[in-house]
Simulated assay, not measured.
Amino acid sequence: MNKPQDRPPYGAALAQSGVLERLAAFDPHIAGTPPLGLDLPSSDIDILCHAPNPSQFDDGVWRALADCPGFAIWQWRDEDRPVVARFHCAGWVFELFGQALPVIEQAGWRHFQIERRLLALGGAAFRDAVLALRRAGAKTEPAVAELFGLAGEPYATLLTLEPLDDAALGQRIRHAIR
């Protein structure tokens, strides 16, 4: 596998993998740090899928991707038992997450949408603040929670920002990056 700094942009790796076409039946959506411009050399490409039938998703992923380097697949034991798979392509790690919920209702997609809004509203200063925390070892959601002073579990508390309008988010961003 290529060293992370030698890998192509995530869009090129995505195209090379063909994963969106291979898994089209599961409504795949790209999420995570690369499309947000917050990726680090250790970042992966996250793909969220609608998998109302975990066994069917598992079978579809096996048929489509089992020949890829680093392929692994497993199923969570808790909640609605989502299926997770991982493989390598073009110097990137891809991680698939298949859950019974439609993608737009999944927590990972909701986090991604909130983060996209925050970055659009906060501009370069907010992006730089999040990246500084990420470079220091934080994941994206904990970094945002830290900047906003959100108490509690960061993945859950990030969702408390979801209903806020742009004016309220902008005010919180300005306070966070002072």
Rank of each mutant, 00 (worst) to 15 (best):
G123I: 03
A145T: 09
T160N: 15
E105C: 11
D165I: 07
A156Y: 08
P52K: 02
G91N: 14
A143D: 00
A167I: 05
I73H: 13
D166L: 11
P54K: 04
L65E: 08
L65I: 06
R134F: 02
V144D: 05
D80M: 14
S42I: 12
E105D: 15
I73D: 09
D128R: 02
L169Y: 04
A132V: 11
P82R: 02
L164C: 05
A64W: 00
A151N: 13
A107E: 07
Q106N: 03
T157Y: 10
A151S: 13
A100E: 13
G149I: 13
G98V: 03
L169P: 03
G152V: 09
Q113W: 00
D39L: 04
Y155H: 15
P34A: 06
Q75E: 11
C68K: 09
A125S: 15
P163K: 14
S42Q: 13
L164G: 08
D67H: 07
V103H: 11
C89A: 08
L159M: 15
G70E: 01
S43F: 00
Q75Y: 09
P54A: 04
L158F: 11
G152A: 04
C89F: 07
L147M: 12
G137D: 02
V144I: 03
L161A: 08
C68S: 08
G149W: 10
V84N: 07
T33S: 04
L40H: 02
S55R: 12
D58N: 04
A132T: 15
L121D: 15
G122V: 01
E115P: 05
A151C: 14
R77M: 01
L164K: 14
F126S: 06
P154M: 14
R81F: 02
E153A: 05
R134W: 01
E162L: 01
A90G: 01
A85C: 10
G91R: 11
W74D: 09
G70S: 08
W74R: 11
F87H: 11
I114K: 11
A151H: 09
A90M: 08
P154I: 15
D165N: 01
G122F: 05
A120H: 15
G149R: 00
L118E: 09
R127C: 10
L121M: 10
E162H: 10
P54M: 04
L164N: 09
A138T: 06
W76G: 06
D58T: 07
P35C: 09
L169V: 01
F126T: 05
P154D: 12
A168D: 06
Q56S: 04
A138I: 00
A100S: 15
E141T: 00
P69K: 09
L164F: 14
P34W: 03
R63V: 06
R174Y: 09
D46L: 12
L118N: 00
L133K: 04
V103R: 12
G122I: 10
L65F: 04
N53G: 09
A143S: 00
R63A: 06
W92G: 02
D165C: 11
I104A: 15
D166K: 07
L169G: 12
E162G: 12
